[in-house]
């Protein structure tokens, strides 16, 4: 770990100003950043501790939605009564991730911008375009069991490891950003993340002079919400594939659906194709199969991860059946 200076921010605007200094980074929960700093993958020269900024609250919005402060801890969001009753898919996604100890530390904003768990990204001796742009991608042709099947490029086949962000994607969340000049903007979560293309080191649209201050959840769609995470062991493991689904069924017909996958792409993968294949169709297995085929139509396996294509289809079908069956 490289040496750095440390400051604790007490004012949100001042914190954003402080991070514009070259080499500066925010630290909040630290559960991903310190992990990476110990391996010299991240090497900030200055840390701005934003964990105590007054951005912890979860607030009602006038339109019936919720605003989750960027500093709200994952465990607090998962346990929030309003989240549990109105956005259970988010609560389920959060508690399926990491461990109780990590969720007590990890912040909402930090969870959104966590880095990939690709083992080659974690190995400074391996080629990795995300860590060392231009060096190549060791995962292509390497051990790529956990890697992307959708939206990847020849530069990078890493996945985004968050569960929380997958649920937020299915909930049409927006990310709220604050600039050093005090101006704010909102970005739809699907636009917040970038696909790797040939610049996999740029993972989202967060500017160097910006801070995530919150996540906005619009009022939920009617219908059942389910988060399903598939993994080798029963707990404490990143997803091989996960599905967040919101399905609204009226008299046996799907009126509306939201579908997002985790563990399959460089970003939480919203599948409009699956949603289109579901809308106004009967809530039956053949519909779900068609949606799964549509969702995975462009999927590409890299060898070890070939199975994830079929796995994602099956996970989606079962999740849709459960969500539709219960609504």
């Amino acid at each position: 770990m490289k040496s750095f200076t440390y400051e604790r921010a007490t004012d949100t605007r001042a914190a954003v100003a402080a991070v514009t200094r070259p080499g500066a980074k925010f630290i909040s929960g630290g559960t991903n950043l310190l992990d990476l700093m110990k391996l010299d993958i991240e090497y900030p020269s200055h840390l701005v501790d934003i964990s105590r900024l007054p951005l912890r609250d979860i607030e009602e919005l006038p339109d019936g939605g919720l605003r989750i402060g960027a500093q709200a801890r994952n465990s607090d969001v998962a346990a929030d009564r309003r989240v549990r009753t109105r956005y259970p898919v988010l609560s389920e996604a959060l508690v399926s991730g990491a461990s109780g100890q990590l969720r007590n530390k990890a912040s909402t904003g930090g969870n959104l911008v966590q880095r990939t768990r690709c083992p080659y990204f974690y190995d400074t001796a391996a080629d990795c375009n995300k860590r060392d742009p231009g060096s190549g991608c060791a995962a292509i042709g390497g051990f790529n069991r956990i890697h992307a099947i959708l939206g990847a490029s020849e530069s990078c086949i890493a996945t985004h490891p968050s569960d929380m962000a997958v649920a937020m994607t299915a909930l049409d969340a927006e990310v709220e950003l604050l600039r050093a000049d005090g101006s704010a903007r909102r970005v739809a979560i699907t636009d917040f993340y970038r696909l790797p293309g040939d610049t996999p080191h740029i993972e989202n649209v967060l500017g160097g002079d910006e801070m995530i201050t919150g996540v906005l959840l619009p009022p939920p769609l009617p219908g059942r919400q389910i988060y399903r995470k598939v993994r080798d062991r029963a707990s404490y493991e990143f997803a091989l594939v996960s599905v967040a689904a919101v399905v609204s069924v009226v008299q046996g017909t799907i009126r509306e659906a939201r579908v997002a996958f985790g563990g399959v792409a460089h970003k939480p993968w919203r599948s409009v194709e699956a949603e289109d294949a579901l809308t106004d169709r009967p809530a039956r297995m053949d519909t779900y199969r068609a949606a799964a085929e549509a969702a995975l139509r462009g999927a590409v396996g890299r060898g070890d991860n070939d199975f994830k294509i079929e796995l994602a289809k099956r996970a989606l079908c079962r999740t849709l059946a459960q969500a539709a069956g219960a609504s």
């Binding site: 604790r8 630290i27 310190l34 992990d35 501790d49 990590l102 007590n104 530390k105």
Partner: peptide, 13 residues
């Protein structure tokens, strides 16, 4: 009162 991992946080925090 909350359980956390002391390896992934800094003493100065």
């Amino acid at each position: 009162g909350r359980r956390v991992l002391s390896c992934l946080t800094l003493a100065v925090m």
